[in-house]
Structure formats: C-alpha cells, structure tokens
Nucleic acid binder design. Structure first.
Length: 213
DNA sequence: TGAACTCGAAATGCGGAGTG
DNA sequence: CACTCCGCATTTCGAGTTCA
C-alpha cells in the first residue's frame, strides 16, 4: 500500500507541500500510488447499478465488502455513479435504494441556459443546500424513486471468485495493450521519416493489425 | 470532550482527442 | 496550431466516528 513507510511513492509535482500532503484511505488508487485504474466495462457498470439499488446510494463500504467490484475505490465508484445519475451532486440520493438510471434518463432530458454540464453531468451552480433543504429533497426522492424493499433485497450480485487473479488478468491485459500501442507508435514514427511512396503500403499494414487487435 | 481519524461529496486541474 | 470539450485523477472540505 502507498501508506507503507518502507515504500516511498514519488508524489506528483502538482501536490503542494503541507499538512494535507499525505496519502489517505480514500485517495484514488491510480497513477502516483502505482496501482491500476481500470475503466468501466458494461458489466461492471451494470453491477454497480445493481449494488447501488441493493445497498443504497453512496454505501461504498457495503459494496466493497460484498466483493462484487474488486479493485474499485469509492472515488471511482462515485464518479461512475455521477455518470449513471447524470449529475455531479449525489447527496440528495444518499442511502436511497433507487435505480440511478431512472434519474440519469430524467436528467438527460433537462435543458436550459441555467443548466451547466460537465462530462454530460449536471453541475451544481446554486449555493450549497442547507441541511433542511437536503432533508426535504431526500424525502421527496425517497417518495418518488425508492424501490420496494422486497425488490432491492432480492437483487443478486455477481461474486468474483478470486479478485487477486482477476486483477492480475487485468494487469496482463494492460501490459499487452501498452505493447500494442508502442508497436503502432513505432510504425507511425517510421511513416513520418520514410519516403512517401511507401506510405500507403505501411498504412495498410497498420490498419490491418489494428483491426485484428 | 476534543483531537485524530475515516469516509463521502464536490470542486478543480490536467492531458488527450477532436475540430476548424 | 489554437481552441474546445471530455474524462479522469487529484485535492479539499465537512460530517461522522473513535478513542484517549
């Protein structure tokens, strides 16, 4: 782990020196703490959706504990939740057993000059909600969107038999893709330096190899 | 009881891809 | 080449929890 004193991880230059410059448990598992940051496949996204319906929005500890999404940090899951919901702010759904896709479809239809989006997610432009406002919104969302208990409690989540093996397979796949990328980049570099007469021939080779990969 | 710690939410910044 | 947009990691903050 990055917090291990025996294992000094080089910090990114963007980080300023100071009290906050420490690795915390919810720090994203990526780049500077040297672990993989896999993207989200369709299946993983679907698993997250089911897990959120079953355990409640934002209940990351229960989701991690269930082992249905090994290797994912709460930061990664939170980002994916924002994508599913179509909005950045998730507090008004905290703890609710709802289908995030329903909210996402509703949000995708909202238009107007007052709506600011980033990554297709609606960003909060108003001030921060007061506790009372937040409580009211949560109550309203609960009434409108919460699934019946018999429905969410019956949700079955896929169980990964060996998370260590699965992560190793992902690392192997990443290594393979990196090699592939280096090969293609090498060919591109060649194409830039060779005579134009051979350009088409080489381009076809690259195209074919890319399609096979 | 208050400091230290943990967790989740949200804001911010960076880099790559696309486009004119 | 400059600009914009998108996706993601990183940073920061607040609230809750633990423990001496």
């Amino acid at each position: 782990m990055a917090g291990n004193d025996a294992f000094q991880v080089q910090k990114p230059r963007s980080m300023t020196a100071g009290a906050r410059n420490v690795v915390r448990t919810n720090d994203s598992a990526s780049l500077w703490n040297c672990t993989l940051s896999p993207g989200w496949s369709q299946e993983e996204s679907e698993t997250l959706r089911k897990a959120l319906m079953k355990f409640g929005i934002g209940n990351w500890a229960r989701i991690i504990e269930s082992g249905c999404l090994p290797g994912k940090t709460n930061a990664q899951m939170n980002l994916q939740l924002q994508r599913l919901l179509g909005q950045q702010s998730t507090a008004e759904f905290a703890g609710l057993h709802i289908d995030p896709k329903v909210i996402g479809e509703k949000n995708s239809k909202i238009q107007g000059p007052h709506i600011k989006r980033k990554n297709n997610c609606i960003v909060n432009t108003g001030g921060k909600l007061t506790r009372e406002e937040l409580r009211e919104r949560m109550q309203r969302n609960k009434e409108m969107y919460e699934l019946p208990e018999e429905e969410w409690s019956a949700i079955e989540l896929p169980k990964v038999e060996d998370p260590v093996l699965m992560l190793e397979a992902k690392r192997e796949e990443l290594r393979r893709l990196q090699k592939e990328l280096a090969k293609v980049q090498g060919k591109i570099e060649q194409m830039r330096t060779i005579q134009p007469a051979r350009m088409d021939q080489l381009k076809n080779t690259v195209d074919n190899e890319t399609q096979v990969a």
